[in-house]
Nucleic acid binder design. Structure first.
Lengths: 231, 231
DNA sequence: ACAAAAGTGTTCTACGTACACCCATGA
DNA sequence: TCATGGGTGTACGTAGAACACTTTTGT
């Protein structure tokens, strides 16, 4: 391909804020870097975009390399382009968030070679992060906090079958406030996007709760537009 | 600066969707390119980010070169990174929108040399655009349509002193629907963020309307959070 | 006097919010 | 039988939505 474009010493990268919900806590996936710079620091999973790869594809690839998962809900949310954000040169990074169903079976398969390990860490308990990754995380968190109020993204984080209490807990940790149980349930059920199952929770030492499913079919039929959750 | 980073044939650029409101119409600023590729096509104003320049700075620079204006409301909204979006190589572009007070005096000072002219064109009457700029425009328009519902960005487009009818017209063109006059005025005035002036409209051949100002001081005092306009 | 837009209130409905107790289950 | 969360209803206040006529001003 002929190019008339000027050449700069510049690189694109992708960084991902990958959310999971487990044991009542909102977590993100962090890696421990085993490359300079910031070797041995915690960082968001991310890497350089390849020459012949779209940025969406790069985001999916990075997620796959770390988790073995495909077809995950991902969304681009901001691009960070300060001159000195990377100590070794000009790197502009496009940030994505993803939401993963942890399902108890949260085994990670880090196929990647740029991370010595990958772990889920509660968003309330994050270590210092490499580069400007704390800023990136904050902005991503703000984004989903915002989005959960008008889009049904919460269901991406829950197991397929969940109780209303689990759903409420998830809203509470993302919005960082207590919600009223009766009001929450009334509102949720009123939307008509939950399918009540004939099944109950198992293995709890108290009254078992009914299980529900997110009814995506009904959701898209009812709402071309948007909901307002969690307010 | 030592660099261990790989080198790609890749370039960052910025593209801007610059909105203005004039004669009851929402317009954007387009340039006619005088460089290949897409020479003589209409395009969004945009250019390559310089080596030692942040992307926010690049966006402001591009706006300044075309309009002579600084300190304008600008916001990054999406990054477009498909492999073949530029015919001459890999170009990832970060898109910004801006809002400009046209004020009748809408003279443009295109200091730039990559555009043979720049004009304001109604969003309802756009020509075919170069590259993927139609996609970029649509996404930017969607973004402000969304944002105007919960943030007071409309005032960035209006003259300092405006009538309630002008304000309503602006909401109507952005939201693309008719609003009820009485409800609109009641709601707007209830927020308490408009300052009623002792002045009236001039030069109209019918009953002159009261002029208002956006009271930014009151706005920030009242709302740490957000409003919901235009619904 | 006419044309054009300014300006103004009420009613109904829907939704958010506050609030506390009994129930079912497993240990 | 006890501990633990599951599950439920009412009353109030607020905000959005529907809806039409009179007033002012310049020509």
């Amino acid at each position: 391909m002929e190019t008339l474009l000027p050449k700069f010493d510049s690189v694109f990268s992708i960084d991902c804020v990958i959310f999971g919900f487990d044991e009542g806590e909102l977590k993100i996936l962090l890696i421990e870097r085993n490359e300079e710079p910031f070797k041995d620091w915690w960082a968001l999973p991310g890497y350089i975009v390849e020459q012949e790869e779209s940025i969406d594809h790069a985001a999916e690839r990075i997620l796959y390399e770390l988790t073995g998962l495909r077809d995950i809900y991902m969304d681009q949310f901001y691009t960070f382009g300060d001159v000195n954000r990377h100590p070794q040169g000009r790197v502009i990074t496009v940030a994505y968030y993803a939401m993963i169903r942890l399902n108890g079976s949260k085994e990670l398969k880090p196929i990647s070679n740029y991370a010595s390990k990958a772990v889920w860490i509660s968003v309330n308990d994050l270590p210092k992060l490499a580069f400007d990754h704390e800023k990136i995380f904050s902005r991503g968190f703000e984004k989903i906090r915002n989005k959960i109020s008008y889009q049904p993204i919460a269901f991406e984080l829950l197991p397929e079958k969940f109780t209303l209490t689990q759903l409420q807990q998830l809203y509470e940790v993302i919005l960082n406030k207590k919600l009223d149980k009766r009001n929450f349930r009334k509102k949720m059920l009123n939307y008509g996007i939950l399918k009540e199952l004939d099944e109950k929770q198992k293995g709890v030492s108290y009254r078992a709760a009914k299980l529900y499913k997110f009814d995506k079919r009904k959701y898209t039929r009812l709402f071309q537009k948007e909901l307002t959750f969690g307010k």
